[in-house]
Design a protein around this nucleic acid. Structure first.
Lengths: 350, 350
DNA sequence: ATTCTTTTCGTTACCGCTAACATAACTCTC
DNA sequence: GAGAGTTATGTTAGCGGTAACGAAAAGAAT
């Protein structure tokens, strides 16, 4: 008698499926990987066997055989709750899909010291690349450490003008234009705009989108309708105060992010203006604060998961560079956003 | 010439180390897994080779050979930011250590519908067990789905009286007692207490710890010193109002969580009382709100990472039950907490 | 019908590591 | 110092998949 079989953890293996379908394991493998060169009839037979046995490929075996099993790091530091969740989901999915691993490291506080600690921890764990969501995507210490170590990095929304080549971002300009057009379609003409931080690239882009939409609709922008801001609630208060005391008063205000939009709603209420009946207010980002105000904000939602996925595939393509051409490592440098209509916007009063 | 070698991703393998150290691969494996039965001299040689080559074992190969590679799910739904981070870190570490995988699923909103969706998603992904941090640990839909599917579950702080056997929790009572003793040592005698939600087990425990410490110090508790609360900021305001208008006024207030402690500080300020000079306020949980008030709260910190680790090992032990005795799957059902001293507490004025 | 392609499928070897077994080395009796 | 009992190390055979190659079957061309 043969020696006792070592283990029997795996309930159903590729061989079981092959036997059941009357083909070789290799054919099953091809079907599972959606490779070409399998006759359709055969594919059907295999798929039937797969679902009959409820076969689930063993990822470790697959990784091992493929020689994949690259570890990609991810340093996260206090973005918003929902953002992290969505980001993580996208990154994990991309990791699973490519048979690779994601190692998450957390910076308790967003300080240089912890940045360095996180980066070193990951480096020691033997990662092949890193993806950095905001705000770590803009941390100079992290960036420089990985540059020294020649570990590829993909950043998300790092907001920096240079090194766009390895950053994943959104179509700020397009989305901003779309939002402005939405307001115009609602009948608004006097549309105010609150800018973001001047040092962030997104601010420039969002303002550009606004101006472009206005220009295309042939609406001249009164200089009083545009106020400075810094993406903070506080700065939103100041800006809104300015806009709402100008004459003629805007009938709609487009703030460059949700925090400032929330501030605008607050100021409007203090001025006795009801939103959206007397004033339409819209934001950008779909952050948690967008639904913690009343009325809830019409805003722009970012495809966070998709961006994370792109970032993952971007580093992956850099890691496996010398080896072979990117197979299915599709990624977009810029992503499209989606307008979410909520209660803070309404047609203009004639 | 031999056929071309297939891949060469792995830079340094166990065989390289074995060759360098002049031993067999098996010996290296034993050293890497800290097994007994290797002479100390040999171990040293191997370790030297390991660090010389900077050898990093291939996890996939290890998983595959060991027959580990169990997938454990984790459903998360909007706990606090830092909590999630710490929890995730612990769970991931435990997964790595045991050569298993963690699959994270996110409930966007904490509703029954999304609970069901998450649970089904994980079930379909072929997980062998689940760990549930709060608040999903108390979601009845999730619990019942996995019970039907006979998938083991480990909850963390589910706050439910029954089914303690698969819940990981903290030493509420001990920690609460410790905090009270700390206040007594500071010279406080009139110590007020704000209770938590009556339906949560933790509330009972925390109150019990408070009463026990007082009893041991032979301080009789004036009924006016104990106010009801519900773990919310709002309820904290009401409770604090009550406590601060009673005579004699407490010199210290111990709130059952940080939100209520923060509320207490607010009320104190409104009453013209300076914290901590005229009133000491302490909380429980070390939540983000603990450091977003001024002065920052002295509070109790939970070992979130350790609890996650325990939860992971707990499910693991349930999963691998029939096979073999738990090797190193150590876990604690209850964890000790740590008192964090910040600015909101000071010695009592004579 | 025969030969040449192309497509479809099977065979073999191996990914990197470890369980189980085999063997060698070393200790300890008496 | 031979035999028995331990302890330390090596050997072999997989774990469950897939890359590379080859062979058979199906089409296309002569």
């Amino acid at each position: 008698m043969a020696r006792t079989r070592r283990r029997n953890r795996q309930t159903v293996t590729i061989d079981d499926v092959a036997r059941q379908a009357g083909v070789s394991a290799m054919t099953v493998s091809r079907v599972m990987n959606a490779e070409s060169g399998v006759r359709d009839a055969t594919r059907q037979t295999v798929l039937k066997a797969v679902s009959a046995l409820n076969y689930q490929p063993n990822r470790s075996a697959r990784r091992l055989a493929k020689g994949a099993d690259v570890h990609i790091g991810l340093i996260y530091a206090n973005p918003s709750d929902s953002y992290l969740g969505r980001f993580l989901r996208g990154a994990l999915e991309a990791a699973q899909a490519s048979d690779n691993h994601l190692i998450v490291d957390i910076c308790e506080d967003n300080t240089p010291a912890t940045h360095v600690a996180s980066a070193m921890r990951l480096a020691k764990a033997g990662i092949a690349g890193v993806i950095l969501p905001p705000p770590t995507s803009s941390a100079p210490e992290i960036l420089s450490i990985f540059e020294e170590l020649h570990i590829p990095v993909a950043t998300v929304a790092n907001g920096n003008m240079d090194q766009k080549h390895n950053d994943i971002n959104i179509e700020d300009e397009t989305a901003s234009k779309e939002m402005t057009q939405y307001l115009i379609e609602l009948g608004h003409r006097r549309i105010g705009f609150i800018k973001g931080s001047p040092d962030q690239m997104s601010s420039t882009m969002r303002e550009r989108g606004y101006r472009q939409a206005m220009a295309e609709a042939q609406i001249e922008i009164d200089p009083n309708w545009v106020a400075d801001g810094h993406y903070t609630y506080r700065s939103g208060v100041t800006a809104a105060e300015l806009l709402l005391t100008s004459t003629p008063r805007p009938s709609a205000i487009f703030a460059s992010n949700d925090d400032m939009a929330a501030a605008t709603i607050g100021v409007a209420h203090r001025h006795g203006l009801s939103v959206p009946e007397e004033l339409t207010v819209v934001g950008f980002d779909n952050s948690p604060s967008a639904i913690s105000v009343w009325p809830e904000l019409t805003t722009i939602d970012q495809p966070v998961s998709a961006m994370a996925k792109s970032a993952f595939n971007l580093v992956l393509s850099k890691v496996g560079l010398g080896d072979e051409a990117d197979k299915e490592l599709r990624f977009e440098h810029t992503h499209e956003c989606r307008l979410i209509e909520r209660g803070s916007s309404a047609p203009a009063n004639p």
